[in-house]
Design a protein around this nucleic acid. Structure first.
Lengths: 111, 111
DNA sequence: ACTCTGTGCAACCATCGGTTGCGCGTAGGT
DNA sequence: ACCTACGCGCAACCGATGGTTGCACAGAGT
């Protein structure tokens, strides 16, 4: 019923590499740009850019630790993102069911 | 458990304009590039390109009708897309719950 | 026949995902 | 204290993509 979709947030997780980045950070909290890039088919600089995007939409948060920058996922914002996925999915699903119901009611008239 | 995410499909619905396009087509089946562009803040040509992308991943299907090209949503493919949204959402949600549970178990040791 | 309307095609532009290359600071080994 | 080496940031560059404008063409309506 909300439908209040945040395009920036959605676009952030729309990119495959960023989605994997989130996956990696969920599994291995406190990863650095370098460590993450080693587990991905892209360079450290590419990862850095993606982390920048994720940071801008609040999905991750960086904390300097010595000469490293450790990143961790922002649970709340990720939960919000998950909610949006569910929202859109539910809306489309409802449409599909409605369409299917209509199609059936045509095949099997209501009386 | 599947995790078999189709990047092309996901990227297709990752774009805000394309997502709205799908929304519009679900509400107003058989829309044309021109009619759809009137309900969006972009030009017809931009819409045409997006419909091309959606067509390539099988989310919509065009049928020439006279001099017009009417587009309709492919129910099955959209259902697949919805499933993927649910998949990723569920995976992340599970992680969040697990993390939260761990955090709680630290505050309230298991005994 | 002439016009309107819907398409398609092409050129062009900004942004984005990705790369390479460089320079800098800081942690560690000796 | 030194020097190495690792992690990082910045900048230039490149191809793909989301967007625009402009034009040329085809099918209906009068």
């Amino acid at each position: 019923m909300t439908g209040a979709v945040d395009d920036d947030l959605w676009s952030a997780i729309g990119d495959p590499t960023r989605r994997r980045l989130v996956d990696l950070l969920l599994a291995d909290d406190g990863g650095t740009a370098t460590s993450l890039s080693e587990q991905l088919p892209v360079t450290r600089q590419a990862v850095t850019k993606h982390l920048g995007v994720l940071d801008r939409v609040g999905l991750v948060h960086a904390t300097p630790s010595g000469r490293e920058r450790r990143y961790r996922v922002d649970d709340e914002q990720l939960a919000r993102a998950v909610a949006q996925l569910a929202d859109v999915g539910a809306a489309w699903d409802a449409r599909l069911r409605r369409i299917k119901r209509i199609a059936e009611s045509i095949q099997h008239p209501a009386k």
